[in-house]
């Protein structure tokens, strides 16, 4: 078990090194490479934490789609980041405070794999027993009941976030000349008519 923990520490060290490299490197092409590496490492780390579904998502979205999206963004901009004029002190403070708050928040959480944590003791039987009554017997699948009814607002919020992000990405990646091409195509028949 000690050996597995040593491997965990090494993977986390690699993750931290990659994150620092992404932040430090000026060549944007190389930064895209490093985000791919970071996604692979993050997915491996999710797997170590026994979360294979999150690891699947991280591998598909992080290493696959987001690399392609970042590269298409790179096609619209330059390949080198602008040099920083002065040291950004305010963002550093915001990041450090946010990180410290998040670490403070994890102090109240139960340990990983703790059998006495509430997730493993209280939630599961009550949901399975009450689901049939709460759904009036019309929704036999407990997972669907939890996702769409008990956590309905949470799911709605997640869908809204993903929808907004998709619209924003579409707006950013839209080809700059496409609108003018469409308008010129539309104006051509009018000219031929006149």
């Amino acid at each position: 078990m000690v050996m597995l923990e040593l491997i965990d520490i090494l993977v986390l060290l690699l993750l931290a090194t990659t994150a620092v490299a992404v932040a430090r490197i000026r060549n944007l092409w190389a930064a895209v490479m490093f985000t791919g590496i970071y996604s692979f490492l993050g997915a491996a780390w999710m797997l170590i934490l026994d979360a294979p579904d999150v690891a699947f998502t991280e591998a598909a979205v992080g290493a696959g789609i987001s690399t392609v999206l970042l590269l298409s963004t790179l096609a619209l901009t330059s390949r080198e980041e602008k040099p920083i004029k002065k040291f950004p002190i305010l963002p550093l403070i915001v990041v450090v405070v946010t990180g410290a708050t998040l670490v403070y928040g994890t102090l109240d959480m139960p340990h990983v794999g703790d059998p006495t944590s509430p997730v493993h003791t209280r939630m599961e039987p009550s949901f399975i027993e009450k689901s049939d009554h709460d759904m009036h017997g019309e929704l036999p699948n407990v997972v669907t009941a939890v996702l769409a009814s008990y956590r309905g607002y949470d799911t709605l919020g997640e869908t809204t976030v993903i929808f907004t992000a998709g619209i924003a990405v579409l707006l950013i990646l839209r080809r700059p000349g496409k609108l003018s091409v469409a308008s010129s195509n539309r104006s051509q028949p009018e000219e031929s008519d006149g």
């Binding site: 692979f40 690891a55 591998a59 598909a60 290493a63 696959g64």
Partner: peptide
């Protein structure tokens, strides 16, 4: 299975 998916993603990327 996840390792299989990773090799596919690696290739496509």
């Amino acid at each position: 299975d996840l390792a299989l998916l990773y090799s596919l993603m690696n290739f496509i990327g």
